[in-house]
């Protein structure tokens, strides 16, 4: 592709993509206090990478985040979520009962906080990994797109 092509798009995207990724993590870790959570954060993160792939080419995105990594990330997310439930079982509670994660006195909130942060991370990994896997499956099959194709 002609490197001088779409120069404004590239410059704007270069400043926007780090902000989009940062915003994904803001949504993730601020989910207790404001709208959003793991699902939205995962989608926003995936959209940031997809924007990178659309503007700088799929092959550079594949070098940045290989498809084997996205598949593993998705699986790790679901396992992390399910693992928190098993941790609660070992703590003497029911499956996914966050109150039993830590040995804390009645009325403590730390177990809930840690449980929710961990499962939201699981959702983030699961959603971001799955969405990128789907995107790579589609986009990896198309060679470079010339302008006439649109």
């Amino acid at each position: 592709m002609n490197p001088d092509h779409h120069v404004i798009l590239r410059v704007v995207a270069k400043t926007l993509i780090p902000l989009i990724t940062l915003y994904a993590f803001y949504v993730q870790f601020h989910g207790d206090y404001s709208p959003g959570g793991g699902f939205q954060a995962g989608v926003i993160f995936a959209v940031g990478i997809i924007l990178y792939a659309l503007i700088f080419g799929v092959s550079s995105a594949l070098r940045l985040i290989p498809p084997s990594f996205t598949r593993g990330l998705a699986a790790a997310g679901v396992l992390l979520y399910a693992g928190v439930g098993i941790w609660a079982l070992f703590g003497g509670g029911n499956y996914l009962e966050y109150g039993a994660l830590l040995d804390e006195p009645e009325g403590g909130h730390h177990g809930q906080h840690i449980g929710i942060i961990l499962i939201e991370l699981g959702v983030l990994f699961g959603v971001a990994g799955s969405m990128l896997t789907i995107f790579y499956a589609f986009a990896g099959r198309v060679a470079e797109i010339s302008d006439e194709d649109w």
Binding site: A74, S130, M131, T133, I134, Y136, A137
Partner: peptide, 14 residues
């Protein structure tokens, strides 16, 4: 969501 990603990867190949 994970199953959807897995199904697409299996159908379109990886």
């Amino acid at each position: 969501v994970f199953t959807a990603g897995l199904a697409v990867a299996l159908l379109l190949g990886f």
